[in-house]
Design a protein around this nucleic acid. Structure first.
Lengths: 257, 257
DNA sequence: CTTGCGGTTTCCGTTGCGTCAACTCCTACG
DNA sequence: CGTAGGAGTTGACGCAACGGAAACCGCAAG
């Protein structure tokens, strides 16, 4: 019993193009290829296709499906990892839904008049570069005050390439700006959107050092107490240092309890 | 005051590659291009970039952003449509999360032994093609029993190209198989996953004819009462006709009630 | 003999860039 | 004054999972 590609397409509900694609990537090679180049599928192929479509409906990628079917990975393990990805993606969308909904409400409230909610926009991008002298001084100070954390972070930094460091720098900058935008929009620091940024901030810090609640509150304090840091944040937007501090404290209280 | 591309990249937290991309697609052309080809940005460009990044964070596509910024679309309108898309996407992920979670639980329960939950798998794909004689007979019968609905559906079919009809056929087949899989997995017909399929089924039917609750229940009845339809469904999997009927009734009761 | 059907391969397009590669221009250094 | 380096440029390819179109080929019927 052998079926042509169109037969299989009709039976399974996928297009022949898809079947050819699955052949091309080695996911579902046909049992036999005729002398005229036509693909012929057998029952075993239909069974394999059935498994493929089942997992595809669960949202798994073709690579993962292939790994599972070729017994190079365990079903449950793959599914659990997939489940985690789905969860975080859903939460991200959930946050987006709320944010967009709030934005719509704000825009409607303002009745389409002045939508420049950002003050000092010409300075909002005014960069964040501590002078290298400042950076060296802060580094030395950190070494004295928190020797263990300094050592950990030093090792983490050494494991980074130049490109990694540039990426890290960009991420920090982009995040500061997002937080600044939330601030000038009047978002309270306990808002989920702000706390999501703080979560990203915390995870970023964890790449070098994993603070507990008290330590994270201590880090927050330096944002307002250390004038060199404070000026950097306030240069982005007035009051950003305080705002960041408050948001971090809330995060420490509610998430690092 | 003019900034180089690297300046803008540092200030805004995006890469210079991104800025070049935005230039290439006409989203953010620089204010000036020097004789050496270097891009120079002014304050107005930074403002525009700021707007772009704001909307990008809301998950809008670059095309939509461009349409808004060039006043070819209204912010609120675009955002509302985007909000709807986000909502349905989040719901889809939500369903996926639950489905994958259930699948994991099932796999763990069976302790990795026999995971062939599908009975008669060699027949699962055995196609669904009423003979053309049957099809003509059913068509004629439908014309007598429901003349108005028949006329509406005839017009809808005539508006379809061959490719459309093939797509439609494939969708129907694929859906039948998904429902069959849910059935052999023992999913109750009231389960959200099954009801989601019924929702798709209902919307599919609506392309030709929009039944109310009673009419949809009547359509469900033909699945079990008409032996020609029944045999088609049961050929896919034993009991599928009954299962489909029950699921449609529940859908009619809860969603069309 | 042509028409048509059912196959085939090959290539472009989708989204938002990352990541080379190859080249140019300008400045600083020896 | 030659050259190394840094900052900029323009291509071009890659990703995920195919959709769609073009161009070609073999085989049966009218």
């Amino acid at each position: 019993m052998s079926w042509s590609i169109a037969d299989v397409a009709r039976m399974s509900g996928v297009t022949s193009r898809t079947l050819r694609h699955y052949d091309a990537i080695g996911l579902l090679p046909p049992a036999r290829i005729g002398s005229n180049g036509h693909r012929h599928y057998e029952e075993a192929d239909l069974l394999r296709l059935q498994q493929i479509l089942l997992m595809r409906e669960l949202g798994l990628g073709l690579r993962a499906i292939q790994a599972v079917l070729d017994s190079r990975a365990d079903r449950v393990t793959v599914l659990r990892e997939h489940h985690r990805r789905l969860l975080s993606e859903r939460d991200r969308l959930d946050t987006l839904v709320r944010t967009v909904g709030r934005t719509i409400a704000e825009l409607e409230e303002k009745d389409g008049s002045a939508m420049t909610k950002i003050n000092r926009p010409e300075n909002l991008f005014e960069g964040f570069q501590a002078s290298s002298a400042d950076a060296r001084a802060m580094d030395a100070e950190a070494r004295q005050r928190w020797p263990r954390a300094w050592e950990e972070s030093r090792q983490a930094v050494q494991g980074m390439t130049d490109a990694d460091q540039e990426r890290w720098q960009r991420e920090v900058t982009a995040q500061m700006i997002r937080v600044a935008e939330l601030m000038v929009a009047g978002t309270p620091v306990a808002d989920p959107a702000v706390q999501a940024e703080m979560d990203a901030h915390y995870r970023g810090v964890c790449r070098f050092w994993t603070p507990d609640a008290a330590a994270y509150r201590g880090l927050a304090k330096t944002y307002v107490d250390d004038p060199r840091m404070r000026v950097n944040w306030d240069r982005i937007a007035d009051g950003l240092a305080d705002y960041q501090h408050d948001a971090m404290v809330v995060y420490a209280d509610t998430r690092l309890g």
